[in-house]
């Protein structure tokens, strides 16, 4: 019966193909249309990468790659001797990102475990959209909160003149990374086979022990990928860090220092730089470095996520 049906449809298909050429053309054009759209995304990615490389090349005629990567001094507007080292802003970016993860990862895993394993279905239906709404808050609003709310508290706690520093940026970026990490961690936890949970409970483990010792470890690779994607988001974020970190152009020595990340350096300086100057091209080179970092982070996340054992 099954094979009969199959033959029928094959027959229909072949007669249709023979009969109407116009349909064939239509199929082909739809196919082409989707193929074009798919390729377009790849082309855009390659185009952006090419543009960054292209615009960065002139910078390296004036700047040695060694200076660019390993010098702490970024002072392109000096009259005496301009310097173009990105190390301090690279360190600033990493500091703020790592700080954000220290803040966001425990909260995210806790929230995700709560939503997927503990909350009643009614609470879950409220909590999930709330997390998603968090993702839709404009970054400028988060920056605003950093200046008016988080900053003053940090200043008070650490006894500083103001609270615009790496801690502030870390907290805000952490908040911004929460929705990504929470949603993906929750997916990872949901993917843990029920049989593990049952095995653990049947051995007399409490719900809490089961979550901590079985479910979260079993979801580890998904959670790591979630964290890396949240990290990718934090590294590239601009407006919030621009507003909340003070943007001092110097090598940071602690989390209470004001920092200028790669993103905020580009945002601040690109508007005022002379077109075609070395400084102008150097900013593209910073952009290229940033692109490579986020690309590597996202790619790693993707590989970890796809290599996770299919349970």
């Amino acid at each position: 019966m099954g094979s009969g049906n199959c033959n029928d449809s094959e027959n229909k298909l072949s007669t249709r193909n023979k009969l109407s050429l116009s349909k064939k053309v239509k199929e082909a054009s739809i196919h082409g249309c989707f193929l074009f759209n798919g390729l377009l995304v790849i082309l855009i990615l390659i185009g952006i990468f090419a543009l960054l490389v292209w615009a960065s090349i002139p910078a390296f005629k004036e700047i040695s790659i060694k200076e660019f990567l390993f010098s702490f001094n970024w002072n392109p507007t000096s009259y005496v001797k301009p310097s173009y080292g990105i190390l301090s802003m690279l360190v600033s970016t990493l500091m703020v990102t790592i700080g954000a993860m220290i803040f966001a990862v425990p909260i995210s895993i806790g929230t995700a475990a709560f939503i997927s394993d503990i909350a009643s279905s009614r609470v879950r239906e409220i909590a999930k959209p709330v997390v998603e709404i968090l993702a839709s808050i404009p970054s400028v609003v988060i920056g605003f909160i950093g200046i008016t709310l988080v900053g003053p508290y940090i200043a008070k706690i650490f006894n500083l003149p103001d609270g615009l520093n790496a801690i502030n940026g870390s907290i805000l970026l952490g908040v911004m990374a929460l929705p990504t990490i929470i949603s993906l961690t929750e997916d990872a936890l949901k993917g843990v086979p029920k049989s593990y949970t049952e095995a653990s409970l049947a051995l007399g483990a409490t719900k809490w022990q089961t979550i901590i010792r079985v479910r979260i470890p079993a979801a580890a690779s998904g959670i790591i990928a979630a964290v890396m994607l949240g990290m990718g988001r934090a590294i590239g974020e601009t407006m919030t860090v621009l507003m909340a970190t003070g943007c001092a152009n110097a090598m940071p020595t602690s989390f209470t220092d004001s920092v200028r990340t790669m993103t905020s350096a580009i945002a601040i300086e690109l508007g005022e730089v002379a077109y075609g100057s070395t400084h102008y091209y150097a900013l593209f080179a910073v952009g290229l470095a940033l692109f490579l970092i986020t690309f590597a982070v996202n790619l790693t996340a993707d590989i970890i996520f796809n290599r996770r054992p299919k349970l």
Binding site: E198, A199, A202, G204, P309
Partner: peptide
């Protein structure tokens, strides 16, 4: 803890 269980499909932890 007093009443242990073995399941139909073996389910060791990873």
């Amino acid at each position: 803890r007093r009443v242990g269980m073995v399941f139909q499909k073996s389910n060791p932890f990873p």
